[in-house]
Simulated assay, not measured.
Amino acid sequence: MPLWGIGLMFFGTFLLFALAHYISKSKHPFKRSLLSMAVGILTLVAVNLSGSVTGVYLPISLVSVCVSAFGGVPGVTLMLGLNLFF
């Protein structure tokens, strides 16, 4: 996938989250949607940084970054669970 396609996908997800936060009457929908995506990516980074202690890590790829940005903490938890069983 070209780089502009990836950027467009992240921007579209950002706008979708912003719309969801706007509908739910959030005061700052853009800030909340950016925070939601950032928390997911930071959770993926935290799992990989603690991997030397816990022995569990998730490979950083386009798929894992997208799942963590779109799914947030539940998305990272899902990837950890799938990594455990497969």
Rank of each mutant, 00 (worst) to 15 (best):
V73T: 09
G40M: 08
P2S: 11
L44E: 02
C66I: 13
G12R: 06
L62Y: 10
G75T: 01
M9P: 01
V65L: 15
K27Q: 14
L15H: 00
T13W: 06
L15T: 03
F14P: 00
M37V: 04
T43L: 10
V45S: 04
V76Y: 01
S26Y: 05
L19D: 05
F14G: 00
S36N: 05
A18L: 04
S50R: 09
V67R: 00
L15A: 05
L15K: 04
V73K: 03
M37Q: 08
S61H: 12
V47L: 11
L15F: 04
H21T: 12
V63Y: 10
S68V: 08
G51F: 07
I41V: 14
S36K: 01
F17D: 09
N48L: 11
I23W: 05
L78C: 07
A46I: 13
T77E: 07
M79R: 02
F86A: 03
G7I: 12
I23A: 10
G12Q: 08
S33C: 07
G51Q: 11
L62M: 12
T43W: 02
M1P: 15
L8I: 10
F30M: 14
P29D: 06
S61I: 13
F17Q: 09
S52I: 15
N83T: 09
L49K: 06
S33Q: 03
L84Y: 08
M9Q: 11
F14W: 11
V76G: 03
T54E: 11
L34R: 00
L44K: 02
M79Q: 06
L44N: 01
H28L: 13
V53E: 09
H28F: 13
H21G: 06
G75I: 02
P59A: 15
I23K: 08
S64P: 01
F86I: 11
G51Y: 07
F85R: 06
S36R: 01
S61Q: 12
I6Y: 10
Y22I: 09
V45T: 11
G55M: 09
K31S: 11
L58P: 00
V65T: 07
S68I: 07
S26H: 12
V39I: 15
L44R: 01
I23V: 15
H28C: 09
R32K: 13
F14D: 03
V73I: 15
V53I: 15
V63L: 13
S36Y: 02
M37I: 09
A69M: 10
F70N: 04
F85K: 06
I60K: 04
I60N: 05
T54V: 11
F85H: 06
F10T: 03
P74C: 02
I41Y: 04
H21A: 14
M79Y: 02
L19Y: 10
A18H: 02
L8G: 14
P59S: 14
L78D: 01
S24G: 09
L42M: 14
G51R: 10
A20F: 12
L3A: 13
